[in-house]
């Protein structure tokens, strides 16, 4: 049974990689990636715009959301926590396209509108994960720390934040991956990015534009996702990995 299962899994894996390889071979043979190598300058420019929108908004979101998450989990402001969490939950059910369109309503056409939309949209998962991470620290552990004479700042710095780091990074990862996709729609509000080629492809029924835009965006999203998953792994304090394993057992 076990070897049968293993074999099934292997077959599925081989089929998957074959399908991916077939897609790329087919794409190249049809010249579907040709926009990339025929206009490398433009490609890099669009990629640059794309990355700029993502990182400018993501960076600003981290700067605001992490301190805000710390703030609402302080005992004195605990009462604001449920409100913030509710807003963050609700906000994430609003589709990204709607947020982008709403930002355009505020700032008009341009890069600013795209950055604003992505910024607001990134706040939510980062905020949510920061709060969840800080809240995951056992009350008794914090009580022991207080009883031993750690100041609130020392408890935050030495106990709460090390325990929350992984969750915060996971929030940043979620935000960035969503942003990469939303940035592909930024063309609609006149902010450029690789979405330009995707939409050109849709309008002109030109598959080479579609593929030359869509595949790099996809790879970018997967790469960022993997990079941040790797960061989560290496940045998790060893003691916490053990703690998690102990809890799951």
């Amino acid at each position: 049974m076990d070897t049968f299962n293993k074999r099934t899994a292997l077959v599925v894996k081989i089929l998957l990689w074959t399908a991916i390889a077939a897609f790329f071979i087919w794409g190249f043979s049809q010249g579907m990636f040709r926009q990339i190598y025929e206009q490398p300058g433009l490609f890099l420019e669009l990629l640059g715009e794309h990355v700029l929108i993502i990182f400018a908004s993501g960076f600003a979101a981290v700067l605001i959301a992490v301190p805000l998450g710390i703030f609402v989990t302080r005992p004195a402001f605990r009462r604001t926590e449920w409100f913030i969490v509710t807003v963050a939950n609700l906000g994430q059910t609003i589709p990204s396209l709607a947020v982008l369109a709403l930002a355009m309503g505020v700032l008009g056409i341009g890069v600013e509108a795209a950055i604003l939309a992505l910024f607001v949209y990134s706040l939510l998962p980062i905020l949510q994960n920061t709060i969840a991470g800080l809240d995951s620290v056992d009350e008794n552990t914090k009580d022991a720390a207080r009883g031993m004479g750690l100041t609130n700042l020392q408890i935050l710095w030495k106990v709460e934040l090390p325990n929350a780091v992984v969750s915060i990074i996971a929030g940043i990862r979620t935000a960035l991956v969503i942003n990469i996709g939303t940035a592909a729609l930024a063309y609609l509000v006149g902010a450029g990015g690789l979405g330009v080629w995707i939409f050109t492809g849709i309008r002109l029924f030109d598959n080479s534009y579609l593929i030359s835009g869509a595949v790099p965006v996809t790879l970018l999203a997967i790469a960022v996702d993997l990079l941040f998953r790797y960061l989560e792994r290496v940045l998790t304090p060893k003691g916490l990995i053990l703690a998690r394993e102990a809890n799951e057992a």
């Binding site: 008794n140 552990t141 022991a144 009883g147 031993m148 004479g149 325990n163 304090p237 003691g239 053990l242």
Partner: peptide, 15 residues
């Protein structure tokens, strides 16, 4: 800091 404090659920810092 001049008083030792021990609780039931040890309160050790997992990190």
């Amino acid at each position: 800091r001049k008083i030792g404090y021990v609780i039931q659920s040890n309160g050790l810092f997992p990190n």
